[in-house]
Simulated scan of single mutants.
Amino acid sequence: MPYYESPVDGTRLHYVDHGPATGPVAVFVSSAYLGHEMWEYQMLPLAEAGHRCVALDRRGHGRSDDAWSGYDLDTLADDLNGLLDHLDLREVTLIGHSVGSGEVIRCLTRHGLARVARVALVAGVSPGVVRSPGTPDGLDPEAVRADDEVFRRDRAAYFTALADDFFAAHLPGNQVSPPYVRHMIDRCLSATPRAANGVRAVVAALDLAAELPALHLPVLVVHGTHDTSAPSALTGERAARLVPDGTLKVYENGGHGLFATHAARLTADLRQFIDAGAARGDEPAGAGAAGR
Rank of each mutant, 00 (worst) to 15 (best):
residue 99 V to I: 15
residue 185 I to E: 13
residue 127 P to I: 06
residue 136 P to A: 12
residue 85 D to H: 04
residue 166 F to V: 14
residue 100 G to K: 04
residue 187 R to Q: 14
residue 99 V to L: 04
residue 189 L to A: 00
residue 172 P to Q: 10
residue 86 H to F: 10
residue 96 G to C: 08
residue 187 R to P: 01
residue 148 D to E: 14
residue 77 A to N: 02
residue 158 Y to G: 12
residue 142 E to M: 09
residue 97 H to A: 15
residue 145 R to H: 12
residue 185 I to D: 11
residue 160 T to C: 00
residue 85 D to R: 06
residue 74 D to V: 12
residue 163 A to T: 15
residue 86 H to S: 11
residue 156 A to Y: 01
residue 175 Q to V: 12
residue 163 A to L: 07
residue 127 P to L: 06
residue 105 I to F: 03
residue 115 R to P: 08
residue 81 N to W: 08
residue 142 E to Y: 11
residue 98 S to Y: 08
residue 190 S to E: 14
residue 168 A to H: 03
residue 113 L to Q: 09
residue 152 R to D: 15
residue 162 L to W: 07
residue 128 G to H: 00
residue 134 G to L: 02
residue 106 R to F: 05
residue 99 V to R: 04
residue 138 G to E: 01
residue 171 L to C: 05
residue 148 D to Y: 10
residue 92 V to D: 10
residue 140 D to V: 02
residue 95 I to R: 02
residue 140 D to R: 05
residue 90 R to H: 15
residue 140 D to K: 04
residue 107 C to L: 05
residue 163 A to E: 14
residue 93 T to Y: 02
residue 118 R to D: 08
residue 140 D to P: 01
residue 93 T to E: 11
residue 122 V to R: 03
residue 189 L to Q: 06
residue 187 R to H: 09
residue 165 D to N: 10
residue 83 L to P: 07
residue 166 F to L: 11
residue 162 L to I: 06
residue 174 N to A: 09
residue 103 E to S: 07
residue 187 R to N: 12
residue 188 C to H: 02
residue 186 D to S: 14
residue 88 D to S: 14
residue 172 P to K: 07
residue 164 D to Q: 12
residue 165 D to G: 10
residue 179 P to N: 13
residue 81 N to K: 00
residue 156 A to N: 07
residue 107 C to N: 09
residue 157 A to P: 10
residue 77 A to Y: 02
residue 160 T to A: 15
residue 77 A to G: 13
residue 166 F to N: 11
residue 102 G to P: 02
residue 88 D to L: 01
residue 152 R to P: 02
residue 167 F to E: 11
residue 172 P to F: 07
residue 94 L to T: 12
residue 182 R to L: 11
residue 185 I to M: 05
residue 122 V to D: 10
residue 102 G to I: 06
residue 82 G to K: 03
residue 163 A to K: 05
residue 173 G to V: 09
residue 142 E to F: 02
residue 114 A to H: 11
residue 108 L to H: 03
residue 168 A to I: 08
residue 181 V to Q: 12
residue 136 P to H: 09
residue 188 C to D: 09
residue 162 L to H: 14
residue 117 A to W: 00
residue 175 Q to A: 15
residue 176 V to E: 02
residue 104 V to E: 06
residue 129 V to Y: 01
residue 169 A to F: 02
residue 178 P to A: 04
residue 134 G to A: 10
residue 165 D to A: 15
residue 111 H to A: 06
residue 156 A to Q: 11
residue 100 G to H: 06
residue 117 A to I: 04
residue 124 G to C: 06
residue 110 R to F: 01
residue 191 A to R: 01
residue 98 S to L: 00
residue 183 H to M: 13
residue 136 P to C: 09
residue 115 R to D: 09
residue 87 L to V: 05
residue 133 P to D: 09
residue 152 R to K: 13
residue 170 H to F: 10
residue 148 D to W: 02
residue 149 E to L: 13
residue 98 S to A: 14
residue 85 D to T: 09
residue 103 E to K: 05
residue 108 L to Y: 05
residue 169 A to S: 15
residue 135 T to N: 14
residue 137 D to C: 02
residue 150 V to L: 14
residue 102 G to R: 04
residue 155 R to F: 12
residue 189 L to F: 04
